[in-house]
Amino acid sequence: MTETLTFQTGTFQTQQGSKYLQQLCKHFAHKIEVDYDAQSARMALPTGPATLAADETTLTARISGADDAALERARHIIDDHLKRFAHRENFEAMGWETL
């Protein structure tokens, strides 16, 4: 039986989206499979596949999980790391929406 995943999208308005995308990917690449360039990324988070996209004004994350607990963990993984990387922008959390 195939596991059904739920998806959420998070956004962070920043002009440093590409920088943060690359920082996240370089950091995560030590523990999980990551494929990225300056504008996009695919990551094998433990909760399910995730993608990142950066443009001139926004960093967008699309996460997946089998249940609410998995989505919460994925949000925490992304938000917690961005808090460290984007501390100069007073980052607290992405704006998350269920798809």
Rank of each mutant, 00 (worst) to 15 (best):
M1R: 04
M1T: 06
T2S: 12
T2Q: 08
E3M: 10
T4C: 11
T4D: 15
T4Y: 13
L5G: 14
T6G: 09
T6D: 13
F7C: 14
Q8N: 02
G10M: 03
G10Q: 00
F12V: 12
Q13H: 14
Q13D: 10
T14K: 11
Q15E: 14
Q15H: 10
S18R: 08
S18G: 09
S18M: 08
K19S: 03
K19T: 11
L21W: 00
L21I: 01
Q22F: 07
Q23P: 00
Q23F: 02
Q23V: 07
Q23R: 14
K26A: 09
H30S: 05
H30Q: 14
H30W: 00
H30P: 06
H30M: 06
K31F: 00
I32P: 10
I32M: 07
E33M: 12
V34T: 12
Q39K: 08
Q39W: 01
Q39M: 02
Q39G: 08
Q39I: 01
S40Q: 11
A41R: 01
R42S: 12
R42Y: 14
A44I: 06
L45W: 08
T47D: 08
G48R: 11
G48Q: 11
G48F: 08
A50H: 03
A53G: 08
A53V: 10
A53P: 02
A54W: 00
D55F: 02
D55W: 06
E56L: 12
E56T: 08
E56H: 11
E56N: 10
T58M: 14
T58A: 13
L59H: 00
T60D: 02
A61Q: 02
A61K: 04
A61M: 05
R62H: 04
I63P: 03
I63L: 04
S64R: 10
S64D: 13
A66H: 09
A66C: 13
A66I: 10
D67S: 07
D67Y: 06
D67Q: 05
D67R: 04
L71T: 12
L71V: 14
E72W: 10
R73I: 12
R73K: 13
A74Q: 05
A74M: 01
A74E: 05
H76E: 07
H76T: 04
I77R: 03
I78C: 03
D79L: 12
D80T: 10
H81N: 01
L82V: 09
F85D: 00
F85G: 01
F85M: 04
H87W: 13
R88A: 15
R88V: 13
E89Q: 15
E89Y: 05
G95I: 12
G95K: 12
E97N: 10
E97T: 15
E97F: 06
E97C: 06
T98A: 14
L99E: 15
L99W: 09
